[in-house]
Design a protein around this nucleic acid. Structure first.
Lengths: 194, 194, 194, 194
DNA sequence: TATGAATGAGTCTTCATTCAT
DNA sequence: AATGAATGAAGACTCATTCAT
C-alpha cells in the first residue's frame, strides 16, 4: 500500500464526510441516504462501503469536529459567582457555535434518534455531552461551592437544559433569544443547585 | 343510531389503535408500518385507510389525546413547597404518559422540526407546551412565592427543561431514570427561581 | 315503489352526475374516483353502486348534454361557398361551446382513453362525432358540390381535423386563435375536397 | 472502457425496454407496471430504478427516440405532386412508428395535458412537432408550389391534422385505417392549400 | 482502491367493488 | 333507497447492502 493510495483513501473518506454534512444541513436527516451521500460526494456506491461498514458506522464518526471547550476550566475558581459565570460562558460559546451552523442544520441534528448525542455511546464527546463536570468537581474540592446532588446528576441536568435550549431555538427557527435563554435558565438552575 | 355497524366500526378503530401501540412497545417505531399494524389488528389494509386519513393521522391521535392538566392547578397553594410539589407532579404525570407511548415513539415526536411542539403555533396545546404558567401567577398573586423573572421566561425555562428530559430519555431508549431526572431537575430549577 | 322514492332516486342520480362533471372540470380525469364523486355528491359509496353498475357505466352516460347543432343544416345550399361557410359555422359554434367549458375541462375530456368520443361506441352523438355528413350528402345530391371520396371518409377527416383543433387549443391552455385556426384549416381542407 | 460490466448494464437496459414493449403489445398499457416489466425482463425491481429514474423516464425514451425525419426533405422538389408525396411519406413514416408502439401506449401520450406535444415549449422536437415547415418553404422558394397562408399557419394545420389522425386511431384502439386516413386527409388538405 | 450493477423486501397510499344493515 | 365498513390487490418508488470486475 503506497502512501499515495493511503492519501487517496483519506481524501475519499473526507469527501464522504463533507457530503453527509452538507445533506444533513441542506435537506435534512431523512434525505441522508447512501445514494444521496455518494452522489453529493461524487463517489461510487461501493466506495462508501469500502470506507464504512454500514450507514450507522458513518453516523457514529460524524460529529467529531466540535470546537474545543474550556478557556480556563482547569483553573480553580475563587468564588461561586465566578463558577456560574464560567459555566454560563462555556455554553454561550456553544450558542455561538450553533448559530454558525444555523437552526436548519441543528434541527436536523437534534433528534433523539441521533445516537451521536447519546453520552453512553460516544467516547469522544462533543457539546453538550462534554460537560463541565470536572470543573464543578474542582470547584467543589476547593470549597468554592457546595452541592449535595451526585456529580453525574448535575451534568445530566445541565445537558438536558442545554439540549432544551437548543431545541427551543431550532423550533422557533432561530427566532428566539438563544443566548438570553441559555444564560438565564442556566443561572437559575445553578442558583438552585448551590 | 348506535347500530351494529357503528359499533363494529368503533371496534375496528380500537383494534387498530391497540395494534399500533403493541407494535410500538414490542418492536419499536421502525416496525410501525401500515402493513404490520393491519396484520396485528387482523384488519385489511384498506380498512385502515377507511378509519384514518394517513399514517400521521393515526399517530397524531396519540399526541393530541394527552392527559388533561391536573385540575388542582386552580386551587391556590398555601406554601412554596406545595407549589414545587404540584408542578413536579404535573410533569411526573407527563412522564407516565410518555412511558405508555414508549421512547421509540416519542423519539419520533420530539424533533425540532415538529412544529406542533412550537408554542407560537399551536392553539390546542399538548404537554409540554401547556405549562404551569397561570398556576405560578396564581401562587405569586397569593404571595406564596416570589420571583423576579418575567412569567414568560419562566414558562420557557420549564418547557426547555421538560423537553430536555424527554429528549434524554428518548436518546437512552428508555434506559434512564426518567421520573427521577424530571423531579430532580425541576426541583433544582424552581429552587433557584424562588 | 312510491313516486316519492322514484323522485329521490332520480335526484341522487342527478347529484352524482353533477359531482362527476365538477370533478372532471376542477381536478381532472385522474381524480375522478368513486370515493371523490360520492364525497362531492354528498352521497354514500354504496348508493353509487345502487344507481350505476360500475364506474364505466357512469362514464358512458356522461356527456349527453351537448348543445343542439345545426341552425339550417336541412336547407339545401345554393352554392359551394355557402356549403363551406355553413360547415365552418357549425364548428365555430362548437368553438364557442368549448370556450364556455374552458380549456381545463376540455383537456381532461379530450383523451383517446375517453371512449365517449369514439363514434363506434356512442349511439347518441355529441360534437364532433355528429358531423355534417348528411348536409354534405344533401349538397351533393343537389349538385351544388362534387367530391369523389366516400362520405364516411370525409366525415372522418373533418372529425380528425376538429379534434386536432381542440387539442391544439387545449395544449396552449386557451392561448391560441381557436376560431381562426378552426376556420382556416376547415376551409383549406374543404377547398381541397371539392 | 467497454468492460463486461458496461455490456451487462446495456443488456439489462435493453431487456427492460424489450419487456416494456412486449407488455404494451400483448397486454396493453394498463398492465405496464414496474413489477410486470421487471418480471417480464427477469430483472429485479431495484434494477429498474438503477437504469431509469422513474416510470415516465422509461416511457419518454420511446417518444424521444423517434425516427429521424426523412433526409430527402432537403432536396428541392421538382413538382407539386412530389411535394405532396414527400410530405405524406414523412407522416406515413410516423404512422409506422406509432404502430410499433401500439395504440394503448400512444393513447397515454396523446393528451392535451402532455406539454411535450406543445411546440411552444419543447426544444427537442419529436413528431408531430417536427413539421415539414422548412421543406414547404424550400419548395415555395423554388417556385414549385405556391400558397398564400403564412407558413406558421400551415404547419399548425398539418400538426392539428396529424394529431387528429393519431387520436382517431388511438380512440379506435388501432382498429382504423391509420395509413389510409393519414394519407387521404393530408392529400386533401394540401390539395386545398396549393 | 474504486466502480456501479443488482438485489428484493419494504414504504405509504389508492382503487373499484361487495355486502350486511 | 341508502349507508358506510370492509376488502386486498395493485400502484410507484426507496433503501441499505453485496459483489463481480
Amino acid at each position: 500500500m503506497t502512501g499515495i493510495q493511503q492519501q487517496k483513501s483519506r481524501e475519499t473518506k473526507t469527501k464522504i464526510f463533507a457530503a453527509a454534512k452538507k445533506i444533513l444541513e441542506r435537506d435534512g436527516y431523512d434525505k441522508l441516504s447512501i445514494k444521496n451521500i455518494c452522489k453529493e460526494a461524487g463517489v461510487s456506491n461501493g466506495s462508501f462501503y469500502h470506507h464504512f461498514k454500514t450507514k450507522d458506522d458513518l453516523l457514529s464518526y460524524y460529529i467529531e469536529e466540535q470546537p474545543g471547550i474550556d478557556p480556563d476550566l482547569s483553573t480553580p475558581p475563587s468564588s461561586k459567582e465566578e463558577v456560574i459565570e464560567t459555566i454560563v460562558n462555556v455554553y454561550l460559546n456553544y450558542v455561538e457555535y450553533c448559530k454558525t451552523l444555523g437552526p436548519e442544520f441543528m434541527a436536523n441534528y437534534y433528534t433523539p434518534k441521533n445516537q451521536s448525542l447519546n453520552p453512553q455511546i460516544r467516547t469522544k464527546r462533543p457539546y453538550p455531552i462534554i460537560t463541565v463536570g470536572h470543573y464543578l468537581k474542582l470547584a467543589k474540592e476547593h470549597k468554592v461551592i457546595e452541592f449535595f446532588l451526585p456529580l453525574e446528576a448535575v451534568t445530566t441536568d445541565i445537558r438536558m437544559l442545554v439540549i432544551g435550549n437548543v431545541f427551543e431555538w431550532c423550533l422557533k427557527k432561530g427566532d428566539a433569544d438563544f443566548a438570553g435563554n441559555m444564560s438565564r435558565s442556566l443561572k437559575t438552575y445553578l442558583n438552585g443547585l448551590f
